[in-house]
Design a protein around this nucleic acid. Structure first.
Lengths: 149, 149
DNA sequence: TATTGTTATACTCTATAACTATA
DNA sequence: TATAGTTATAGAGTATAACAATA
C-alpha cells in the first residue's frame, strides 16, 4: 500500500499474513479438538508429559513455554478431567511429578490424530512441494532445521 | 511426539510452528517500529487511511479488522501524536472522516520502510525460492492468491 | 537462600453494552 | 429505528508477586 522505494516487500505485510494464517489454523484446530474436551494448550501439556521422562510441573512449564502459575491452572483442569495425576516426588518433595493417566494417553492420541487431520485439511490448498517448502521455511525461521518429526 | 498411525504430520505442530514464527516476527517488527513511536496496529491504521478514499472511523475499523470502539482508542492515540486528524463529515454528521496529517504520512512511509527492512532481515535465513514459496503458501492459505503486492 | 507449587492480583488486549448525536 | 462515535465495563489470557513448604 505504500512501498516507498520499491523495496519489494510482502503486501499485505508478512506479519499480517502470518497472523491471518495462524488465526485460521487455530480456529480449525480448536474446532477439531472440541470432541475431546481439551484445547490446544492442554494437548500441548499432554504431549509434553507423554515422553518417557517424568516431568515436574516446572519442567513441563518450561517445555510448553508457559509460566509455572499458568501450568498450575492447566494441570488443575487436566486433573479434574482425569487426564493427568499429580504425585509428590520422593526425591524432592517440593516437586509434583505429573503423569498421564490411561485416559490422558488415549485423549492425547485421539486429539493428536484430530490435529493431524485438521492440519492436512488446512494444507490441502497447497501442492506437495509448496507445503513442504512452507514447513521447511517455518522450521528455518524458528531456528530449527533438523527435527524432521 | 505421538504420531499414532504414522500420519506424517508436522512436528512440532504446524500451529506451534506458525505461532513461534509469528511471535518472532512480531517482536522484530515491534523493535523496528520503536524509533517511530508507533506500533504495528497503528501503522496498519495509517496504511488503511493512506489511500485516496476518505474513510470514516467505522470504515477504517472494517479495513483493519477491529471493533469500532478499538478504533476510537487507536485514533485517539494517533491524533494525540499529530499523525491523523478527525473531521466531521458534512454529508453525514455522524461520521468522523479521518485523514493522515503530513506528519502521519511521513511516519507511515518511514515505519513501512522499517517494517520492510525488518521482514527482509527476518527472511534472510531462507533462500530466494523458499522465501517465495513461503509467501505463496501463506497467500494461498488465507484465500488470497493474486494480490501480488 | 533458592526452588516448587499455589493463590491472588495485575495487566494487556479486545469485544460488548450503554449512551449521545445524528440520520 | 438504525448507525457513528464515545465511554465504561467485562472477559479471556497470561504474567507477576507473595506465600508456605521444602531443599
Amino acid at each position: 500500500m505504500v512501498d516507498p522505494q520499491g523495496a519489494g516487500c510482502a503486501e499485505p505485510g508478512l506479519g499480517v499474513l502470518l497472523g491471518r494464517v495462524q488465526g485460521k489454523l487455530a480456529r480449525a484446530a480448536a474446532q477439531a479438538l472440541v470432541p475431546f474436551g481439551v484445547d490446544a494448550h492442554e494437548v500441548a501439556v499432554l504431549g509434553a508429559l507423554s515422553g518417557d521422562e517424568a516431568l515436574s510441573q516446572a519442567e513441563a512449564a518450561g517445555r510448553v513455554g508457559v509460566d509455572r502459575s499458568t501450568m498450575s491452572a492447566l494441570i488443575d483442569g487436566l486433573e479434574d478431567h482425569g487426564l493427568v495425576e499429580r504425585r509428590r516426588s520422593a526425591l524432592d518433595r517440593r516437586k509434583n511429578i505429573v503423569r498421564l493417566t490411561p485416559a490422558g494417553r488415549e485423549c492425547l492420541v485421539s486429539a493428536d490424530a484430530a490435529r493431524c487431520a485438521a492440519e492436512r485439511r488446512f494444507l490441502a490448498p497447497l501442492d506437495e512441494d509448496t507445503a513442504a517448502a512452507l514447513l521447511r521455511a517455518l522450521r528455518l525461521l524458528t531456528g530449527e532445521s533438523d527435527t524432521h518429526g
